[in-house]
Nucleic acid binder design. Structure first.
Length: 273
DNA sequence: CACTCTCCCTGAAAGC
DNA sequence: TGCTTTCAGGGAGAGT
């Protein structure tokens, strides 16, 4: 399930694979996934050259040399994988981008929670998908003070507040659980009741867990793979996520599993206060 | 307004 | 063994 580290890993690999390449042909194998593919997607991509690959929150931004940017989101199960050219489509391949270098970029997404759309660069900043996004936790400016200002305005459980993409981006269920464990904060605490000192540690923990996960090529817990099809390996470093009933790595007591806002939360009742 | 719930979707895993 | 049920969750929109 792609969160910031997985999306960042895909972006870095895509950058190495497709920047400078021309998109010779776009083949759409259904009308869309979470949202419809725009009518002009094929026309606006074909015969353009990839200038740059970037990321905003969990969105992948592929900048083309014709003034357009492709916006891609992997949702839960989306994959962007390099394939052959010509390419024989597999199950759940929804879009295939034939490149100028004997390779294809393939968008595969069994659950179809992802999306691919395109936007003119002049309007990119006002694009509805991108306007309501919060701060980037890996920006150098991100710190405890910034996070405290966000959390002090929220009465929701701190975990829910962390996962709200309008406040802080890129942190999903896995890394919210992991960061709260590292900081020793119980996920059920109201966000505005977490002290400044705790939030400072939380900000550090978020940065740390995201950076470590990127170093590991992301977490391949269920669906996620890199553009090569290889798996990340940060899932082996999980302290709490998916470990209910197993011993806490700090105190040895059993990890708890509860539901918050319809999502599973894993935490140590002893280490997280 | 702030927050939670529901829905979308498929495949893996658990349950019977 | 094989069928059925449950669960996973990002984000939009509905509901409280």
């Amino acid at each position: 399930m792609p969160e910031l580290p997985e999306v960042e890993t895909v972006c870095r690999q895509l950058e190495a694979e497709i920047v400078g390449k021309t998109i010779n042909e776009v083949s759409l194998r259904r009308s869309g996934v979470r949202i419809p593919f725009p009518k002009n997607l094929k026309k606006d991509m074909e015969n353009s050259r990839v200038k740059d690959v970037g990321r905003r929150a969990k969105y992948i931004l592929i900048k083309l040399d014709n003034g357009n940017t492709v916006i891609a989101h992997l949702g839960m199960s989306g994959r962007l994988i390099m394939g052959n050219n010509p390419y024989t489509p597999k199950k759940h391949d929804h879009a295939i981008f034939r490149l100028s270098n004997k390779k294809s970029l393939v968008f595969n997404d069994p659950r179809r929670f992802g999306l691919i759309t395109i936007c003119n660069d002049r309007k990119l900043k006002e694009h509805p998908l991108l306007t309501h996004l919060g701060i980037e936790p890996l920006e150098p400016s991100f710190n405890g003070r910034q996070l405290y200002n966000i959390l002090k305005a929220r009465k929701a459980p701190v975990k829910a507040a962390l996962m709200d993409q309008e406040s802080l981006v890129g942190v999903g269920n896995i890394y919210a659980c992991e960061a709260l464990f590292l900081a020793g904060i119980r996920p059920t605490r109201p966000a505005n009741k977490v002290t400044y000192k705790e939030v400072e540690l939380l900000a550090t923990s978020i940065k740390q867990v995201l950076e470590k996960a990127i170093e590991s090529g992301g977490s391949s817990f269920r669906d996620y793979v890199q553009t090569s099809g290889n798996k990340g390996y940060f899932q082996h470093s999980f302290q709490v996520y998916g470990r209910s009933g197993k011993p806490c790595t700090k105190c040895g007591r059993k990890i708890s599993k509860i539901t918050q806002s319809g999502r599973s939360t894993f935490y140590c009742h002893s280490c997280q206060k």
